[in-house]
Simulated assay, not measured.
Amino acid sequence: MTSSLTIRRGGLDEVPAVLELLDKATEWLVARGRTDQWGTEAHSTNPRRVEQIRGFATDGGLWVAEKAGRVVGALAVGDAMSYIPPAEEPELYIRLLVTDRASKGSGIGTELLDHARMLARGLGVELLRVDCYGGGDGALIRYYEKEGFTRGEPFGVQISDSEWPGQILFQRL
């Protein structure tokens, strides 16, 4: 774990830093030929994505991880995304998890997921769900499974002429 990591609530001032993390993650994916997850365009230039991150900040669900005064990860929690079937019980939904690719393997994602678990328990919620890219080699699904999540239903989101493959994962607390 990263003992010098601070997790705090994020606001509108953190939106540019979160978008930069997303942009760098996309660059990292593109450099590895993995363009099916998020495409090739910067999130910071996509008005829909900018508005989504601003919404996470204004609804109080955005959390940022800082190390040495720099944002190195972000977590957004709240209600399930509109394309996800509702849960049959109260839940906390992870709407975004992104970490600094330069810090890959340092435990930032795990600490942010632990924070989500703590938030859910604080709300008296026993179900934590997340969705992720369900295509490619399945590496992202395996990451969440390593973090204690179980596969739920796969789903698809229609984007232009194709369907983006997604996977719901859940964890009982």
Rank of each mutant, 00 (worst) to 15 (best):
T6K: 12
L12A: 08
V15P: 01
V15Q: 03
A17C: 12
E20G: 13
L22G: 12
D23R: 04
V30P: 11
T35K: 11
T35Y: 09
G39Y: 05
H43L: 09
P47Q: 13
R48P: 01
R49E: 12
R49Y: 07
V50Y: 10
E51H: 15
G55R: 09
D59Q: 15
G61R: 03
G61Q: 13
V64T: 02
G69K: 06
R70G: 04
V71W: 00
V71S: 02
V72I: 15
V72M: 00
L75G: 07
G78C: 04
G78V: 05
G78A: 01
D79P: 14
A80G: 06
M81V: 13
P85I: 13
P86F: 13
E88F: 03
E88C: 01
E88T: 13
P90V: 13
E91Y: 00
R95M: 00
T99H: 01
T99M: 15
D100R: 08
R101P: 10
A102Q: 07
S106Q: 15
S106Y: 08
T110R: 15
L113D: 11
A116E: 08
R117S: 14
L119Q: 07
R121N: 02
L123E: 15
L127G: 00
L127T: 06
R129V: 00
G134N: 08
G136S: 11
D137H: 03
A139T: 04
L140S: 02
L140V: 10
I141F: 02
I141Q: 03
E147K: 15
E147F: 12
R151C: 12
S160E: 13
E163N: 09
Q167M: 14
I168N: 10
F170Y: 11
F170M: 01
Q171A: 14
R172C: 10
L173E: 09
